[in-house]
Write a protein that binds this DNA or RNA. Structure first.
Lengths: 230, 230
DNA sequence: CCCTTTTTTTACGCCGTCTTAACGGCGGCG
DNA sequence: CGCCGCCGTTAAGACGGCGTAAAAAAAGGG
């Protein structure tokens, strides 16, 4: 799973840029659509992992956009809207939206609700979290790794590390981020833990542990996980 | 499926009655808990389909309630709160809540968000009742196990454990999940129970109990049940 | 009330995992 | 050239989780 792709359907350029910047800063890939018609098309063509949709669109009602996407896709949909009336919220949610945020909103809350949406996605699409590294098949949800028939045993910490890297596939994950995620904030500077475990993971996953092709070092910053291309 | 059961965790009796009435009017079954501790216990004992939790509880922080439930159950959790600060929302959502509604709220919106939560739930239900492990045939609904002609006797707790593992066939089930499901949330750290019963189950089900092929240990995490392939 | 089955409790030894420390290579920089 | 920071590599010891057995307590059934 590469970095999740999020579709933004929003007509006001200013808010669109703001959303794009906020999401991109978190490492998400972003697709933008300025109108409702465009949004439905982009949802179909780009196949994003989820969508953030403004209700107040000029060309096509937001609820209609939701219906058209829901007709063929169960992707998480978060609605943004200036309308605070209860009727609007109910209509949008019953049309198939998964969340409804009223403007003005905080970036932190938006990002938190995006994380919730992606969490739902991850659980409904079990097995979508399998990726291949060289000859190695890796299924994070099933906690299962194998090279052909032989299965590879990974310890709890090894799984946590791989999971953290896989959630930001292709992106650099800092030492501190990995350490706080796995060992807690108290060990956020014990980088030697990482050196030991990265070595072990390479031994188990890489064809040539000395010249890793998937578990890469970013000197002075952190590590990065690269999967095979299709 | 019968009418969905919803757990309400709310300390103020007035709001609690109001929620109960609103939900009951829609045909939902309702379970009430006046405090956080009580809420965690009722979540485990009544096994509701989802929970509505107030953050401002006197005895236990709402976020802590969420964490304890999330430790073993993926049930949808909707948070109600008077706190409008963004920090509170982010903390609750990241702790595992699926939605966050600020007071005062409209009944219509609450019900709409409940429908969203139940919609999510509906998409993650599965379970085949009869499965085979090696030479052993296992029927969870009939509570019946047999190896060829000889039938194998299993005790109530052994069935509960197997059922819990079978519902997540192929996936890891954590110690905590198994313990809260079978013994309740008060014994969520008595992992020695599991060791004893897994041993017994292996003795009864596995061809070679010392080298189990179906009832597998995930060290430091939990256990996993593997059925035969077709 | 007694016997059987089931559950809970306790104890112990083994083995995998984590932690910790030490050493060597590589590259940058003064 | 020598120092220093960062990383990889290895190995050994500490620690905790796990399996195993068996006895004590509780529950169930006649």
């Amino acid at each position: 799973m590469p970095a999740p792709a999020i579709l933004i359907v929003e007509d006001e350029p200013e808010i669109r840029r703001f959303l794009r910047a906020s999401l991109a800063a978190e490492g998400y890939r972003v697709v933008e659509a300025a109108g409702g018609e465009r949004g439905v098309i982009d949802a179909a063509s780009h196949k994003p992992d989820m969508a953030i949709i403004d209700l107040g669109l000029p060309d096509l009602d937001g609820v209609e956009v939701i219906r058209r996407i829901r007709a063929w896709s169960p992707m998480p949909i978060v609605v943004l809207s200036a309308r605070v009336q209860e009727r609007a919220k109910i209509d949008a949610l019953d049309a198939g939206a998964d969340d409804y945020i009223t403007k003005p909103f905080g970036v932190g809350e938006l990002l938190a609700r995006v994380r919730v949406a992606l969490r739902h996605l991850a659980r409904s699409a079990q097995g979508c979290a399998v990726l291949t590294l060289g000859g190695v098949r890796l299924d994070l949800t099933k906690r299962h790794a194998s090279r052909g028939q032989d299965q590879i045993h990974l310890t709890p910490i090894e799984f946590k590390l791989l999971g953290c890297l896989a959630r930001h596939l292709g992106l650099v994950v800092t030492h501190q981020h990995l350490l706080t995620e796995v060992w807690g904030p108290t060990h956020s500077s014990d980088t030697h833990y990482l050196r030991v475990y990265m070595r072990q993971l390479r031994e188990k996953l890489e064809a040539d542990p000395v010249r890793p092709k998937h578990l890469l070092t970013e000197i002075g910053v952190g590590y990065r996980l690269l999967a095979d291309e299709d």
